[in-house]
Write a protein that binds this DNA or RNA. Structure first.
Lengths: 108, 108
DNA sequence: TCAGTGTGCATCGCAAAGCGAGGTCCGTCA
DNA sequence: TGACGGACCTCGCTTTGCGATGCACACTGA
């Protein structure tokens, strides 16, 4: 899969996932890998910076949660502002897809 | 429109356009601008490097054509290898769209 | 006991691509 | 003569994903 295509889609993906509920980093990676049947493996080097940026802009928050075995996980969850942003992103995404589609499949 | 989304789509767009026939740079920009109703204005700084790269990899060729008024235009046209590449890119594009769509619109 | 594996977080330097800005040349028309 | 638009192109910046790397801890099995 061409990496370049993914470039702008990571925030959309993350927000969409978090819209279903809070998740932690490793879980996000695993979820994406499983849902795509392995064709898309989100890398840590892409995930964490994106997550931190989303947090810095207050679209998501994070909190640490201790598991029964004593280990910690950092959960990320969607904020209201993030929901609004997600909605806008979705719209943009649809526009984008339709646009490219119009060039790829000219005429109807 | 988020620039980042466009990142990987430029070659696909260019090849798709050239699949309809030879075009010159300025014409490509105008065509894209018009077809998208102005929402997407392909910039020269994005177009020419992409075009040159496509030419370097022998997916397209270029030739100069002199107009009646004496001015020159550089036309780009699709090569067979470019057609094959386009087909592959289209496939990849569809895969990509379906993947993201699955996250954006979970469940059916 | 201790190495290996899996979980889980994170950063760093690199490469690629679009962008904004700038630059050049030339024909046309006022 | 000078402004405008067509037409080509490059350069440096920023952003982003990637690969590599690092750290820390729990569990398992030799």
């Amino acid at each position: 899969m061409d990496r370049e295509l993914l470039k702008g889609s990571t925030p959309l993906l993350l927000l969409s996932l978090l819209c279903e509920g809070p998740m932690y980093g490793y879980q996000i990676i695993e979820t994406v890998r499983q849902r795509t049947g392995g064709t898309y493996t989100l890398k840590e080097g892409a995930l964490y910076p994106a997550l931190h940026k989303l947090e810095a802009t207050e679209f998501i928050t994070s909190y640490w949660e201790t598991q029964e075995n004593g280990r910690e996980r950092r959960y990320y969850s969607l904020l209201p502002a993030g929901q609004a942003f997600l909605a806008a992103k979705k719209k943009e995404w649809n526009q984008f897809v339709n646009m490219v589609q119009a060039f790829v499949e000219p005429k109807a």
